[in-house]
Computed example of a mutant assay.
Amino acid sequence: MKIKLDIVSGFLGAGKTTLIKKLVTEGYKDEKIVVLENEFGKVGIDTDILKNTGVEVEEITAGCICCSSSGDFLSSIEDIINKFSPNRIIVEPTGVAKLSEILRACNDFKFKGLFEVNNIISVLDVKRFDFVASYSKVFVDDQIAVSKTIVLSKNIGVDIKHIEDIYSYIKNININANIINEDIYNISGQN
C-alpha cells in the first residue's frame, strides 16, 4: 500500500501546527506518522509542540522546499520512508512555499510507487488575510489554487462580510476548494 502524503500549508501563525496536532491526535491516531517541517530558522519552534504528540518530526532548515532545495525535500521524503516506514507523511512547508512546486516535485517519477498525495490543506488567517495577500499575493493565490481544503482560521469576532469576501476570493481562484470556516480549535481532526 502506498504511503499517504498530506500537505498542510499557510503563513506564519495561521494555525498549521495546531491543525496538524489535531490531525495526528484525533484523525490519524492509529497510523504511523512522520511530520516533515520546513523551517527557516536554526531551531524549529513547532518541533517541540509536535513531538509531544508522539509522532516523528523531521526538519528541513536549509531553505524553502519548493525552490532550489527541492532535491533536499525529495531526499528527506526518501530518508523518512526508509528510516520510519510510515503510513502517512505530513509535510508542513513554510508559508512562502509555492504548493504547485511542491506538488510538481511529488510527481517525480522516482516516487510514483512509494506515496500518493492525499490531502492538500491551506490554513488562512482571516484577520491577517488582506495584509498577507497584499505582500505575498503570488504565494497566497498559489496555495488557494492547488488546495483541496482551505481552513479559514482566526475567524472569531471577524465581520461576516469580510469572511464572505475571502470566500468569494477563494472561489474565484479555486471553485472546487472545500472551505471550512470554523475556529481551528473546534475542527475535528477526524474529518
Results as ranks from 00 to 15, higher is better:
F139E: 14
K110N: 13
V126G: 05
L50A: 09
I121E: 02
D141M: 12
D125E: 03
D142W: 06
N87F: 07
C106V: 04
V140A: 10
V57W: 04
E116D: 12
F139N: 09
A133K: 15
Q143T: 03
R128K: 14
C66L: 06
D142V: 04
D130K: 15
E56F: 09
A105V: 04
I65F: 07
K110R: 15
T149Q: 11
K137A: 14
F131V: 13
K127L: 13
V96K: 07
N119G: 01
F131N: 02
V55G: 08
F115S: 06
D130E: 15
I150Y: 03
K148D: 14
F131M: 13
L114P: 00
V91Q: 04
V57L: 11
C66S: 08
S70N: 11
N87G: 09
R128Q: 15
N118D: 15
G95D: 10
N87V: 03
D79R: 15
K127T: 08
S70H: 11
F111E: 06
I121L: 05
T149R: 13
N119W: 06
A97K: 02
C66R: 08
I80P: 02
V138N: 14
A133S: 14
T94E: 11
N82V: 00
D141P: 03
I80W: 02
C67L: 11
E116I: 12
L50M: 10
P86L: 09
T47D: 12
T47Q: 14
I102L: 13
A105Q: 04
G54P: 09
L99E: 01
K83Q: 09
T61H: 09
A133P: 00
S122H: 06
V140Q: 09
Q143D: 05
G113W: 01
C66E: 07
N82F: 01
S85Q: 10
S136C: 07
F111G: 10
I49A: 03
F131E: 14
F111I: 08
I120A: 00
S70F: 09
C106T: 08
N87R: 05
D79C: 02
V126Q: 04
F109Y: 05
S75V: 04
I77H: 03
V123Y: 09
K112N: 08
F73Y: 15
N107R: 11
K98A: 12
V55P: 08
G95C: 13
V123F: 06
D142Y: 11
G113Y: 08
E59G: 05
G71S: 12
V96L: 15
F73A: 03
S70T: 07
